[in-house]
Design a protein around this nucleic acid. Sequence first.
DNA 1: AATGAATGAGAATTCATTCAT
DNA 2: CATGAATGAATTCTCATTCAT
Lengths: 194, 194, 194, 194
Amino acid sequence: MTVDEKKNLKRANIIEAAYKLFTKQNINTTAIDEVVKAAGIAKGTFYLYFRDKYDLLDQLILFKSSELISLTLERLRYEKQQREIELSEQVIFFVDSMIDRFSENKPLLALMSKNLSLTLQNLNSLDSGELQSALSEITDACVERGVPRREVRNTLYAITDMVASVCCDSILYERPCPISEMKPILFSIIKKII
Amino acid sequence: MTVDEKKNLKRANIIEAAYKLFTKQNINTTAIDEVVKAAGIAKGTFYLYFRDKYDLLDQLILFKSSELISLTLERLRYEKQQREIELSEQVIFFVDSMIDRFSENKPLLALMSKNLSLTLQNLNSLDSGELQSALSEITDACVERGVPRREVRNTLYAITDMVASVCCDSILYERPCPISEMKPILFSIIKKII
Amino acid sequence: MTVDEKKNLKRANIIEAAYKLFTKQNINTTAIDEVVKAAGIAKGTFYLYFRDKYDLLDQLILFKSSELISLTLERLRYEKQQREIELSEQVIFFVDSMIDRFSENKPLLALMSKNLSLTLQNLNSLDSGELQSALSEITDACVERGVPRREVRNTLYAITDMVASVCCDSILYERPCPISEMKPILFSIIKKII
Amino acid sequence: MTVDEKKNLKRANIIEAAYKLFTKQNINTTAIDEVVKAAGIAKGTFYLYFRDKYDLLDQLILFKSSELISLTLERLRYEKQQREIELSEQVIFFVDSMIDRFSENKPLLALMSKNLSLTLQNLNSLDSGELQSALSEITDACVERGVPRREVRNTLYAITDMVASVCCDSILYERPCPISEMKPILFSIIKKII
DNA sequence: AATGAATGAGAATTCATTCAT
DNA sequence: CATGAATGAATTCTCATTCAT
């Protein structure tokens, strides 16, 4: 194993340890000391990999949201192999999957919800070719129908934002209602918009 | 002036001082020490009025969002005196006004965006009869058209959430575009939903 | 005892504790923790009185050099009551006394020698009226003999600087010779200059 | 190039890097890490050449002061080739040259002033035969006039000490006056002493 | 000889909270 | 009611040094 691979492994190891602590407790109440002990490394080593706790958080969110999106895209791909799916149906499927992932993993959602803006930013800067191409497909379809490309992108962003925000409240606090009740409302809204 | 009035004045004074600091810096980096110095009171006194920093934040957000909503509702009332306004038009007007208020006061928005969920909760618990009656009016109209009351409430909540979240990003970071460009998109979405 | 008197007492107490540690060990190897323990106060209390270790050092040197000069001037005053002393004789007497004080208290001298420039600066900013008037007397005498006032002040400063520097080496490290041997040389130089 | 030459080159390289950092910042705030990076070597390598940071400082001061003195002596030699110079005149010339060198290179002076005693010690242990012989000449001349040899050496040392100390203050902080104003005073003092 | 990742003791500093006045 | 000096646990971050490669 090369030195660089080792370093990446150690970085991932620290992120994983921090993830457990950040979700079990929360960032403010988690001391770097705890992270370091959980990761089984020396204090100083931490600072070899991260500037400070917030740098760690950034990398953690990027890391975890990448994981999540990859997983969801994979399921979509699999589904598309099984059957023909209409475009708006694909969006719904994607959102539906994401909601399920978050429902299963509330702590992660809680973590991201406190940094929603950051998460969305990361999500966009993700060079997940697949996500980009999926978005392109939708965009192109709308453009064909005469909507300016720029407007499509902004609308998509707004939807993402909305879904994310509503889901946070609904999944984490059942506000204004549990996610099961919110889902059909959300889907109906999405359909209306697209 | 009664003793109670005096206490309220002092409480408001502390909140105002904290508001300036919380918006200029942020909550985590603002020490209670700074707040008390800015408010011109002694450290111990702070604890006579607030349990801790987060109690202060709660009261602060409640206080500031009440102010904002009252102001916006007043403008809406005034507008309704001038001319007949259709229901969905009223919602647009309300949202439009709120966006303008936040655009003028980005620091406040930033503060609330980091505690969006809390803010919305406060907003709902606000016993601003006016806001409630305005919402009732919309709800009733929809119910008449056959939509279940509960679904209407949830949809309205989702809209609020969405608008809030999208505005935060757009106003604060011009992401994905400046608010001026986002507004028509947002309004079009709202119209489609209602 | 007033609150302010109490605070001054506590400050002096901390300085005294630090003085013992700084001279026994040295500044770099003395942790604030040690100072705090020696002074019998809490860590936080330290920062109520001093910005950091170097602020403490500054105040310490000012404090100790004031003490020293006061003591020396007192002896000079006493001596002048006993007998008529010529001006240059007074200077010699003053320097002689100072050298004796430092010889008795090498750790203090060591402390000051590492911050000689700072010490001299403090010494000059000392509003010890007595020292000032003693210096004025000498200056006036020289001015009468036709030397520009400014030149006299500078020469006096140079002498102080020289004496201090030579004494540090001689007393602390017997370099180039013990202070007993250096004294006559120093006095002869001073006489020549004046 | 022999192995030894290579080592010396690397040592000089480290010293040069440290010199820049020590003068720009100061020793306490300069981490070995910085030195190592500036020198373009690995951390471990540093410890092959220096015991620790203070060993490095010692060698650095010795190295730099040797350079300086060599340069100054060379100028003196050149001057003596041009014209007959009286002994006390030579001392003045030497001091004058040194002051000019330091005025041009304040950071170096600052570094040395914080370690004046160390610098003077190094200076004396310098086996610059030339400096020694220059000093011998002066000493011999005085001895001929009946002054004990030992006393001459001590007086010379005191002068060096004085000049150094006064120059530090004057050049670095213009205290009590700029060096241009201090020079004549210093020279007059030296003449009086010799 | 050279490297640089890892170490972990140790230092500085902060800050919410208390409590005697 | 108000004060503000005192507290000390908690936390972050540094950095000289080592040692396996």
